[in-house]
Write a protein that binds this DNA or RNA. Structure first.
Length: 761
RNA sequence: GGUUCCGUAGCUCAGUUGGUUAGAGCGUUCGGUUUACAUCCGAAAGGUCAGAGGUUCGAGUCCUCUCGGAACCACCA
């Protein structure tokens, strides 16, 4: 054995050994209790980050612990397609070649992203192996596998049958320049100066407010006044309450306007009176829905004003804005203009164009019937959240959860299984690539006069069905004259069914045995998006919550205490540390850094400490071997028969091992991983090595002491295995070649098997 | 602005329901080559637990306020 533990020499060898031993493979075994964890699938958009490493470390620790305790364990690996994120990443690659997603029809684009993702998937799987994860590779699931698509679309059908699906207008980030919508992720916020126009809104019926026949409203978007029907004030604004009985005139159209009260109005901003434009502002849209106001669009999808703008129809927004100001000035309705007004504007990440918040029909799910039971199981403690303080976040989120828009205007995902009859829905808006690779846009009724349905379907890019369109839900094409919805499901709609899709819902043997799973371990930041959805779907479809415990780990921040980000250049790559210090040190180092689920800075020192620890236990084994060889005697297997020969220090170390086992078990039951690893660390280093091992050097009855040492050391090795699997297995394989079983499937130290029961008193 | 969390040794952090002299890793200082390990061994220095007040027999831990920091959400017509 070498003087130093060389992780690079052992790690891949040991992983193959485990795989060959079949230890990872889950078996349905009715004589055992199942223990199941689903690996939260890393995103296929790129390699794993340090947070994924922490996740794997914790889950592998739990699985190995339970496996050694005799449970029939299952840990399923997988990868998420990560809809939007992957598509953005892919498009970045496209742009390097001077292309964009607009150059492809749906099918070709999908195929190209698929190939791109396959590469990433393999990189991720290699990383999972490097980490030593004892996942059952036979159960590998990718979020776009056929079995997943089947279950996800079936769920959608059931939701539809149960009348929980509806289509409604929804405000999306629309870029008229790029002709597409963007996710919030893709929208950038920039600071910019724009003129803030103070517009007079005349009061009707000759009434006056504070001696004036108008109220003033400050706006940066005067052109939208064309579709404004309401003004608003804050209910706490006592000075303006009188206005509630007033009617107003629209400064541009002269139509009657009313006024409402809402908390969202900032009394301090501008004049404290706000105009409401439901169709083109997120806040206003929410207010309109709340108060039941009419939502009137001003813009066409090409970014030009529609017929509602009277003479300005067909103008682009910027031009229209200037002309509106001129019109208002002519009418004497501009009080003043603040040219130095700075505010935040949303622009698209692609070209920096202004985002137009726009109303488009989207698919929705009614969440009330789903969220109630999901909220209840946590309230009643049937599902427990660790650490406990994270529960507050869950309750707040569940309380505030609104209906869920599940459709996304991207290609990369599971396509919504809805079909439109093109003859029944002549006003479907279509964008497709013709045979000549030209982008053609129009309503399907018109397009069919020039193009065949087959050509349209083949080159289809997007389809926009009006809110009232007639559709059929079906997995298959329901007839010749149908086109399928081009929207795909929100990533969380499919990943929210992960416990069902990975285990083979509804009737596989695995599903019946391993569901519900035992613990869901993930970062707290996706509690609202993912964890809550899994609870909702799990209960909706099976009546049972998909897991019993939820453990939420903290985020790994950079060494400077800030969030890791590419732009800050403080991203820590797991690969570097894997290579330098080994998987064991990285795993247990990270685990020791996160005691209670709070965010924590990358614990470089701890990783170093545990690298040294791996070497320490390696040398303890070497030394033990050396002494056994030198003694030239048979060292008896430790058993009760030796009890009469024990000295005080022997009894002490045995007692200390007992305490350590108890403490480690207790800590792990409570998901206090750092506490557990530090307990073993100090027991092995301070008590066993520095204390007991040193004392053996002076003993005359070395064979007794060595027998005890070997006993304690082997049990410690078992305790340490789930934390540092590679080095412990490497030692086990080297020193105990006669042992028939690898350490990974050896039995967990239990208090009952130890002699000297009175030791705990 | 809303929500959540944090402020403990030079640095990064533990400290579970309040209970003896407040702990770890790294760093620092001094001393070591002892049957393995210098990724080692032995020893030491270093804390008015952010501040103020309160509850209590007892507070790093519970409550209130002040100051300082972080993250998430909404970012404002």
């Amino acid at each position: 054995m070498e003087k130093r533990y060389d992780h690079q020499k052992w790690e891949s060898k040991i992983y193959s050994l485990w795989e060959e031993s079949g230890a990872f493979k889950a078996k349905v075994d009715k004589s055992k209790k199942p223990y199941t964890i689903l690996l939260p699938p890393p995103n296929a958009s790129g390699k794993m980050h340090i947070g994924n490493v922490l996740m794997i470390a914790i889950e592998d620790l739990l699985i190995r612990w339970k496996r050694m305790q005799g449970f029939s364990t299952l840990w399923t690996p997988g990868t998420d397609h990560a809809g939007f994120e992957t598509q953005i990443t892919f498009e970045r690659e496209l742009r390097k070649n001077g292309k964009s997603r607009m150059d492809f029809d749906r099918q070709s684009l999908y195929k190209n992203i698929w190939d791109f993702v396959i590469e990433n998937r393999e990189l991720i799987n290699d990383q999972i192996k490097q980490m030593g994860a004892s996942v059952d590779w036979d159960k590998y699931t990718f979020m776009l596998d056929n079995k997943v698509i089947k279950i996800v679309t079936d769920t959608f059908k059931k939701l539809h049958k149960d009348k929980l699906v509806y289509r409604d207008d929804y405000m999306v980030n629309y870029c008229p320049n790029c002709g597409t919508t963007f996710a919030d992720l893709e929208v950038k916020h920039i600071k910019r100066k724009d003129p803030l126009v103070y517009v007079k809104f005349p009061i009707s019926d000759n009434k006056k407010f504070k001696g004036k026949d108008h109220v003033v409203v400050a706006t940066v978007r005067p052109e939208t006044i064309f579709v404004d029907t309401h003004l608003a004030i804050n209910p706490k604004d006592k000075h303006k309450r009188q206005l509630l009985s007033f009617k107003f005139q629209n400064p541009l159209t002269g139509k009657k306007m009313e006024i409402i009260e809402d908390e969202f109005v900032d009394m301090e901003f501008g004049t404290g009176v706000v105009k409401i434009t439901p169709a083109h502002d997120k806040n206003d849209f929410e207010v309109a829905k709340k108060h039941g106001l009419k939502i009137i669009s001003l813009l066409n999808l090409d970014g030009r004003l529609n017929e509602k703008s009277e003479d300005l129809e067909g103008q682009k927004v910027i031009n229209a804005r200037e002309k509106t100001i001129d019109i208002l000035k002519q009418k004497g309705l501009v009080e003043k203009i603040d040219e130095d007004y700075q505010h935040t504007v949303s622009v698209c990440y692609k070209g920096g164009h202004d985002i137009e918040p726009t109303i488009l029909p989207n698919w929705f799910i009614k969440v009330d019937p789903l969220k109630k039971p999901a909220h209840e199981v946590v309230k009643k403690g049937q599902v427990k959240i660790y650490p406990k303080w994270q529960e507050k976040k869950y309750h707040k989120w569940m309380k505030d959860m609104h209906d869920w828009p599940i459709s996304r205007q991207v290609v990369w995902g599971i396509r919504i299984p809805a079909w439109y009859d093109v003859d029944e829905n002549k006003n479907l808006k279509i964008t497709f690539l013709s045979k000549q690779k030209e982008t053609i846009t129009g309503t399907v009724g018109n397009l069919l006069k020039e193009y065949s349905l087959a050509e349209i379907e083949k080159g289809l890019q997007t389809l926009l069905a009006p809110k009232g369109a007639v559709y059929k839900i079906s997995t298959e094409k329901p007839g010749e004259r149908y086109l399928q919805e081009t929207d795909t499901f929100d990533t969380w709609f499919s990943s929210g069914q992960w416990p069902l899709t990975t285990l083979g819902y509804p009737d596989s043997k695995d599903f019946q045995y391993f569901y519900p799973t035992d613990v869901l371990e993930t970062g707290w930041e996706i509690l609202p998006f993912w964890v809550s959805r899994m609870l909702m779907f799990g209960i909706y479809l099976t009546g049972k919550a998909p897991f019993k415990d939820i453990y939420l780990h903290g985020l790994v921040r950079a060494m400077d205490g800030r969030k890791m980000s590419k732009s800050l250049g403080n991203v820590i790559s797991p690969d570097e540390y894997l290579e330098k210090y080994g998987a064991d040190a990285l795993r247990v180092g990270l685990i020791s850094g996160t005691a209670n689920g709070k965010d924590f800075n990358f614990p470089k020192d701890k990783i170093l400490a545990y690298r040294n620890f791996a070497n320490k236990i390696w040398n303890m084994a070497r030394f033990m071997n050396l002494m056994i060889e030198e003694s030239n005697k048979n060292i008896p297997i430790y058993s009760k028969t030796l009890e009469s020969k024990l000295k005080k220090q022997d009894k002490d170390i045995i007692m200390s091992l007992e305490k350590t086992i108890k403490k480690v078990n207790n800590s792990l039951e409570k998901y206090r991983f750092a506490e557990a690893s530090e307990t073993i660390y100090h027991f092995m280093w301070d008590e066993l090595a520095s204390n007991y091992l040193e004392s053996i050097k002076d003993r005359n009855d070395k064979e007794i002491a060595l027998s005890i040492f070997r006993h304690i050391y082997l049990n410690s090795l078992k305790l340490l295995h789930p934390f540092m699997p590679f080095v412990t297995e490497a030692i086990w394989q080297n020193i105990f070649k006669s042992s028939d079983k690898p350490l990974i499937i050896s039995s967990w130290p239990s208090l009952q098997t130890l002699p000297n029961k009175n030791i705990n008193k």
